[in-house]
């Protein structure tokens, strides 16, 4: 699996966090990056636009969504799965 997905997701999160992509670690969390609920909704939107996928995410109860937002690694994994599903 290419790291293109990882790089793009990191770039999206970095933009929301106003950081350099290199500052976004795989173990970083939304909290540690300082991304609030609105920032997350924007990041999810950017992911959908970038990868042309539908992210199963409910801002009302993020922890209950199918989209795992535990940390950067879990979000990248989730995006990889969505991209793979799309490619069938």
């Amino acid at each position: 699996m290419s790291d293109e997905v990882a790089e793009k997701v990191k770039a999206i999160l970095a933009e929301q966090a106003v950081l350099e992509p290199s500052d976004v670690e795989m173990t970083s969390t939304l909290d540690s990056l300082g991304i609030d609920s609105l920032g997350l909704v924007e990041a999810v939107f950017a992911i959908e636009e970038t990868f042309d996928v539908q992210v199963p995410f409910n801002a009302n109860d993020p922890s209950d969504s199918d989209f795992d937002i535990t940390n950067v690694a879990s979000m990248i994994d989730a995006v990889r799965k969505l991209v793979a599903e799309k490619q069938g």
Partner: peptide
């Protein structure tokens, strides 16, 4: 829809299974 705070299946205020 963009804000992702809407429920697809019903309005259930105060109920633990509420979802928007």
């Amino acid at each position: 829809e963009g804000l992702r705070v809407m429920s697809k299946d019903g309005c259930r205020p105060f109920s633990k299974n509420r979802n928007g």
